[in-house]
């Protein structure tokens, strides 16, 4: 009987690993839609709107890729994943692309065999506390009870930060952002820690956001970006250059308003190449030449997506900060379309 159980285990594991295809592009085309892993709900990044349609900053990446590959930004099957299930979902082939505010780290890139297609949000880990606690710095958190999402880099940063500062804490492990919010609001933990953007987004959904403050300390670098499986460079290139197209579009002033006009041809050869007027870039990775035009039309350029989902005019109210163009003192720098 023991042998049976062992083989049963292997079966499950073997099937879970799935058969990994070489050409994701062909699979996506054959299926007619893109399977995209997102978070289970983080306002502004990925959350369903009143009509049940997924909206947000991470969702916009999925839609842009779907538009570039299939010509239809709505041809996306969204697969909500938790911090714990996301990597299994990607490596098993359940999803083609993971856009779930995932931090680019060495071990995820090298050891977990993923390829990060770029960075769509430069973030850092912060702390949120209730104003009435009277805490103004993370250094005053010795002995605090802290809600933390399991299976994330923030979990490891938190342990390192408290160890380095010789402080103790009581971790309350939770699985999803919604659960963390409930625990935090019930007062089961003094502090909620995750990426600062996630904190801002969570706070925006509170009934009384003014009673909660983000502490000034940012304790880590969290470069968040979409990722794909190792081993399919063509697919990785498509995702990577779709992201660059969105960023470059903002740099060159291509918006969802003027894109149709610019696509008729301009004096700027870079814009012409990007929008497929000349150069034939799309064919180099088996897409139509107007792939980037379709991607940008899906939700606008990077700046438009940012300001409509998480920007200062939204309840989440994030400033561009590090996520401004390199010409504006930020870190966004699209590689040349040539």
């Amino acid at each position: 009987m023991k042998t049976f159980t062992f083989f049963g285990a292997l079966t499950a594991a073997g099937l879970a690993a799935g058969v990994v295809q070489a050409a994701t592009l062909d699979d996506v085309r054959a299926r007619g839609n893109l399977s995209c892993g997102i978070s289970t709900g983080l306002a502004g990044f990925s959350a369903p709107d009143a009509n049940g349609v997924w909206q947000g900053f991470d969702v916009a990446v999925c839609r842009a890729v779907a538009a570039a590959v299939l010509g239809d930004p709505m041809a996306v099957t969204f697969v909500p994943t938790t911090g714990q299930t996301r990597f299994t979902a990607l490596s098993s082939g359940e999803i083609d692309l993971l856009a779930r505010n995932t931090t680019w780290t060495f071990s995820r890139d090298v050891d977990l065999k993923f390829t990060f297609a770029g960075i769509n949000y430069y973030d850092g880990q912060g702390f949120m506390v209730s104003r009435e606690l009277g805490v103004s710095s993370a250094r005053e958190l010795d002995g605090a009870t802290i809600c933390i999402q399991t299976g994330t880099t923030t979990e490891l940063n938190l342990a390192d930060y408290f160890r380095a500062n010789n402080m103790s804490y009581e971790p309350v492990p939770i699985e999803t952002n919604a659960e963390a919010q409930q625990q935090y609001l019930a007062g089961a933990c003094d502090v909620y820690t995750t990426d600062a953007s996630g904190l801002a987004s969570t706070r925006a959904t509170f009934a009384d956001p003014e009673n909660h403050i983000l502490l000034p300390e940012i304790i880590s670098k969290e470069p968040l970006g979409p990722l794909v499986r190792h081993g399919d460079d063509e697919w990785a290139d498509i995702v990577k250059w779709t992201l660059y197209a969105l960023i470059a579009a903002e740099e060159y002033g291509i918006t969802s308003q003027n894109i149709d006009e610019l696509a008729r041809g301009t004096d700027n050869p870079e814009i012409n190449r990007l929008l497929g007027v000349e150069g034939g870039l799309g064919q180099m990775f088996r897409l139509e030449n107007d792939w980037a035009r379709r991607a940008i039309s899906a939700g606008g350029n990077y700046g438009e997506i940012f300001s409509s989902t998480i920007g200062e005019s939204t309840p989440i109210g994030l400033a561009r900060g590090l996520n401004a163009q390199w010409t504006q003192g930020g870190l966004l720098y699209a590689m040349p379309f040539r």
Partner: peptide, 14 residues
């Protein structure tokens, strides 16, 4: 099944 698991691990490079 075992062969399948081994194959898939190899494809994933793990």
């Amino acid at each position: 099944l075992i062969d399948n698991a081994i194959q898939n691990l190899r494809t994933l490079g793990k």
